[in-house]
Design a protein around this nucleic acid. Structure first.
Lengths: 139, 139
DNA sequence: CTTGACCTTAGACTATACTCTAACCTCTAA
DNA sequence: TTAGAGGTTAGAGTATAGTCTAAGGTCAAG
């Protein structure tokens, strides 16, 4: 199949597929006489694999690692794949914690403010930003 | 004071301060005879204001809005400031929810995998990425 | 034979928030 | 006077993941 069909079947765009090729994630299996990219059913499965992994939150780099495991399973062990997942879990947990501390800081700002049509001269939000030290966001 | 001193006192770098000037967040109050940026105590307070707002999670654009409120408080009402905070709260909550669904998907991957030194030929993580439809991440 | 849909490439652009570089100028202290 | 610290500018680079454009080639149908 040509790139348009793969795009439709995989839910990616042709642009993105070419970009993935340039990035080394998914190379077309061949070329037609007129130099069109030709993809196989296996390529479609790979495209879907990539899309699922991206949706779950893996970066293109991490997807690349999965693909290299996938391309030669007997050479790899479960621990290889699990390590990727577990590292990602730690990262995501950390991001959630950060956002929760941001949320707390925002609530402290918002809850103290009347939010009414009073002049902002004594607005507690502006006040707090003038003087309060926010919980630092570490990353 | 010159940019270096302001950098030290505000916790921003001179680079960042110049960048903020270019972006319209914080302009130096004046220039010396030798064209050095000259900042006042008021500028220092503004720099700290910006830093606090950024730390809490506001974008540079949003900080700009806060600054325009702050620069003429009588013209604005509490609702203006609170609206910014509450919009941000919604955004952050949404991001947290997204990450939590990502985390769930990751746990589903990881928990099913033995993680041992068995060959990856039957690795459930790879399997899942081949076939399972992940919870889509909406944004 | 032409129209329109689809394909090709290299390369520029988007967004966010810096971060750094090169080449040059200024100021202070020894 | 000279070294070194610190200042100036425009502009490029970093990171991520696309997204789009221009200029052209290919193919099937009418």
């Amino acid at each position: 199949m040509k790139i348009g069909e793969l795009a439709e079947k995989s839910g990616l765009t042709a642009h993105t597929l070419r970009y993935y090729e340039k990035s080394g994630l998914l190379k077309a299996s061949g070329r037609s006489a007129s130099n069109y990219r030709i993809y196989t059913k296996g390529d479609l499965e790979t495209a879907r694999f990539i899309k699922r992994a991206r949706t779950i939150g893996f970066s293109m780099d991490e997807v690349g690692t999965f693909l290299s495991i996938r391309s030669d399973l007997p050479k790899h062990v479960c621990a290889d794949a699990k390590a990727l997942a577990d590292t990602k879990i730690k990262e995501v947990k950390h991001q959630i914690e950060e956002l929760q501390s941001v949320l707390k800081a925002l609530h402290r700002l918002s809850d103290a403010c009347c939010g009414g049509s009073e002049s902002a001269e004594y607005c507690t939000i502006i006040e707090a930003l003038e003087h309060e030290d926010p919980v630092p966001m570490q990353h």
